[in-house]
């Protein structure tokens, strides 16, 4: 399909809206699982913004998309493991339980 100015704008606006909703979800909740969900949503926004790159540099764009998918999913899986360990230690998933690095109770 041909990407014209209208399509380009629609894609960028959708990407921005997804990022914004992800951001709003993060700041409107005090729950680590909600933070994880919104991070995944934000990555969805990032993937949308990659589509126009396929018009000029298709192979590089696919490579960038591959790197984004693999690294972000690995990062999210590590985050999931961190959340499980956090729950074991603190018996809760509220962001209020998260302390600054090195801070002790």
């Amino acid at each position: 399909m041909q990407i014209d100015a209208l399509t380009l704008s629609a894609l960028y606006i959708a990407s921005f809206v997804l990022l914004l909703i992800g951001y709003l979800t993060v700041i409107s909740s005090k729950d680590l699982i909600r933070v994880l969900i919104s991070l995944e949503l934000m990555f969805g926004g990032v993937f949308l913004s990659l589509i126009p790159l396929f018009t000029s540099l298709p192979n590089s764009a696919f490579g960038i998309a591959l790197i984004s998918i693999f690294t972000s999913s690995s990062e999210l899986l590590v985050l999931i493991a961190a959340i499980i360990i956090f729950d074991r230690k603190n018996k809760g998933l509220s962001t209020g339980l998260v302390r600054a690095g090195g801070e002790r109770t």
Binding site: I3, A5, L8, P52, A61
Partner: peptide
């Protein structure tokens, strides 16, 4: 004006 526009040929 042509940046990001065109046909996707992947």
């Amino acid at each position: 004006p042509e940046s990001g526009m065109g046909v996707i040929q992947f």
